[in-house]
Design a binder for these strands. Sequence first.
RNA 1: CGCGGGGUGGAGCAGCCUGGUAGCUCGCAAGGCUCAUAACCUUGAGGUCGGCGGUUCAAAUCCGUCCCCCGCAACCA
Length: 508
Amino acid sequence: MSKNFYVTTPIYYPSAKPHMGHAYSSIVADFFARFKRNDGFSVQFLTGTDEHGLKIQRSAEKQGMEPKEFCNLISKTFKDLSKTLNLSNTDFIRTTEDRHIKSVQNLWSLLEANGQIYMSKYEGWYSVSDEAFYQEDEIETKDNKKYAISSGSPVEWVEEESFFFKLSEWEKPLLKFYEDNPKFILPESRRNEVISFVKGGLKDLSVSRKTFSWGIKIPSNDEHIIYVWLDALTNYISALNYPNTNDDLYKSFWPADIHIIGKDILRFHAVYWPAFLMAAKLQLPKRVYGHGWILSGDEKMSKSKGNILDPLEIIDVYGLDTLRYYLLKEVSFGNDGNISQDKLESCINSDLANNYGNLCQRVLAFCEKNCEFKIPTHNFTEDDLKILKPFEDIDKLRNLIDNQDINQYMSFIIDMLFASNKYFNDQEPWKKKNDKDRLNTIVYTALELIRKISILLNPVIPDTSLKVLNIFDISKDAFSLEQVKDHNFLKKDIVLKKLEILFKKIDK
RNA sequence: CGCGGGGUGGAGCAGCCUGGUAGCUCGCAAGGCUCAUAACCUUGAGGUCGGCGGUUCAAAUCCGUCCCCCGCAACCA
């Protein structure tokens, strides 16, 4: 059985600086990558930047820079973000890299050779300021001039020579593919959306532009550059050394296990991307997960509302792990979620400080005073085995993760945290000072609980969980999900290490 | 008839697909414990599950209809 796992984030369009949405996609993808790695998988985890297109070209011009120079600059802020978020990505791709350009041109030639591309004319009402084409019914006439109804901006009739991709031919095959692979698009509500979109009919897709130059040239015609989405989507295989399909990376990791994306770019990933791949006779990714948006309070974050929460600022004030924990636990994965300082603070206080942090603290302090700060002996009773039992079924957890049920996974952990605190409370080791054997066993069990929970929390809060595992002298690559099952993992007499306060409570 | 998401105790959410005692976290009240970051544990108060109608022995859950909120409307996670 192949123990390989390939997860991707979208490649980010660096026309503006990173925001919470970027952070969210990345953190979620990182969570899956880390979980799988802890479970013994060889993991390929890709993120990067999407650097072509008119917007970039213009932003660069505004700054008086060459596009490439401009991209170097902005791409770096995204690379920095992945460090700040403690992403465990194995690669960072830029669409301006040679390996990608080569890959896209190759895919293009393949599509052309397969008769999937033809030359025609793109025509329609075009708004320069919106950078968008409008249908006849989307424009209105005022004073003999045409305007887009939605934006009110003036439109002009534009005819442009363009290459088209025969997307319409793939309508039926796509529908069949969705049918045969009911979990290709998740969550289900998004899948329904896509299916009804495709059933509504697909038109051939314009896949080249000649009005601007910042992009990848079509091998057979250097007047045209390749449509940004055909360019961008290909990154997922460029990073595996496509077009060399005999390459080890490609053979091991394609098709991808999951593309993590935001719901706004679902169509490109769930319709165009599979169509391109089918047309090129390449394998399709196994899953596309379109998550929701992170709202600020109840509103969409926007500059005009001034309610933007900058991930970097939050991390600066509250720390990274708290943000990671919040986003993974508090947001119902697949739906829109929201974040506010107030909610983040209560989450830190109740879940992280009072529940997890305090559990570690009370058990260790007790162990220090009563067991010389060493792993004590143990002799389990029914009570102990009962509290440990839920950790035996890690297949259940694997299953949750394979279905991207992050929230159930988190609630298992939280249930166990409550149960552990209750266990320590109910066993009252402080009243067992004359029964050393029992006292030791209670402490041992509590330490085991902390160890198990910390391993489960590792994909969520990697730094903090490592601090805790460290007290048992368990280091970065020295633990696995499998070890969660083992109730006798901790070896007697190992001297524990001091643990600082994990999460300070925030005064509100 | 544009598309989608949502309306569940004070707040935030789960449950709805596969009908059958309404669940979780926070907050609040009372009690317990004292190992711990005034943390932890127990109990309790608080909901006619947006309105109306239907199906059913039984509906938050299925069907119909209406009201309200929020996004999106092809290149912004």
